[in-house]
């Protein structure tokens, strides 16, 4: 009996120990559960705070990139403006080059010969091909008679161009005053030979030696450009010099030939 009682007491003690162990295990499990929950909460909070930081970083980066994009766009627009400016300047320079080439060729041709007829032909070529005149005449002033006489023409027979007294009509006034005349209506198909649409004095310095008188332009030529006025200026000066020099040269050549013939005649021995 005593043994049974002792066994029972031991069993009771063991059960108590076991129950305490059970309670302890339950407490540990409960604590474990609480800690897990807390850990999950902390991880969640940590994750949320990481997303916010990344999001802030991304926003900052986006702003930075937008700023860069903005300044790049400004740069591109500035470069495009500069390109347009360069392109327009290039066109201007090209046009100026072409104009200078025209003037160079015209001037070169005018001074390429001392033959009077050749110079006149070159003046006619320039007026037809570079200015675009269809009917026109070139007059030279005879200082003895104070009359202008045609020495060259295009589209009109030279003999049909009337003599003009200095100071008479548009042609005579241009020769007297040395000032160019431009009609308001360049498309006028002028038939009257004393009413040109354009009249340019041919001058050596201030001395007028003749005039260029244009009656009609080619049908495709509707107006004068800046270049045409430059050509008129060139013709007024260079054509005048070339015509005057070649005429003097031709006259001196003729005189020289006459004098030479006379000398040759004198050198011949008299026949008996």
């Amino acid at each position: 009996m005593e043994k049974e009682s002792m066994f029972s007491k031991k069993a009771e003690e063991f059960l108590n120990v076991f129950r305490r162990g059970e309670e302890f295990s339950k407490e540990i499990l409960k604590e474990n559960e609480r800690l897990r929950f807390r850990l999950a909460e902390l991880e969640d909070a940590l994750s949320r705070s990481g997303d916010e930081a990344r999001s802030r970083l991304c926003e900052e980066r986006v702003k930075q990139l937008e700023d860069e994009l903005g300044s790049l766009r400004e740069g591109i627009s500035r470069v495009e403006e500069e390109n347009k400016d360069f392109a327009s300047k290039y066109v201007e320079v090209e046009e100026e080059n072409n104009n200078l080439a025209n003037l160079y060729v015209a001037s070169y041709q005018l001074h390429s010969t001392l033959d009077f007829n050749e110079v006149l032909r070159i003046v006619l070529e320039i007026i037809i091909n570079l200015i675009g005149a269809e009917r026109f005449g070139i007059y030279l002033l005879d200082e003895k008679s104070n009359e202008l006489m045609a020495v060259g023409s295009e589209g009109i027979a030279e003999e049909d161009l009337p003599r003009v007294r200095l100071g008479d009509g548009i042609i005579g006034k241009v020769a007297r005053d040395g000032e160019s005349y431009f009609s308001d209506d360049l498309s006028r198909r002028e038939e009257s030979l004393d009413r040109p649409i354009v009249c340019i004095p041919l001058k050596i310095k201030e001395h007028v030696i003749g005039v260029l008188s244009i009656y009609t332009l080619l049908t495709q030529k509707k107006a004068f450009s800046h270049m045409d006025f430059e050509l008129f200026n060139l013709l007024a000066g260079h054509a005048a010099t070339a015509i005057f020099s070649s005429r003097l040269y031709s006259q001196s050549e003729r005189k020289l030939t006459t004098i030479q013939s006379f000398l040759d005649l004198l050198k011949e021995k008299p026949r008996r």
């Binding site: 080439a101 060729v105 070529e125 091909n129």
Partner: peptide, 12 residues
């Protein structure tokens, strides 16, 4: 046939 035009075109 015009030497002036010939020279001008050739130049260009």
């Amino acid at each position: 046939d015009s030497p002036t035009m010939r020279q001008l075109i050739s130049f260009a």
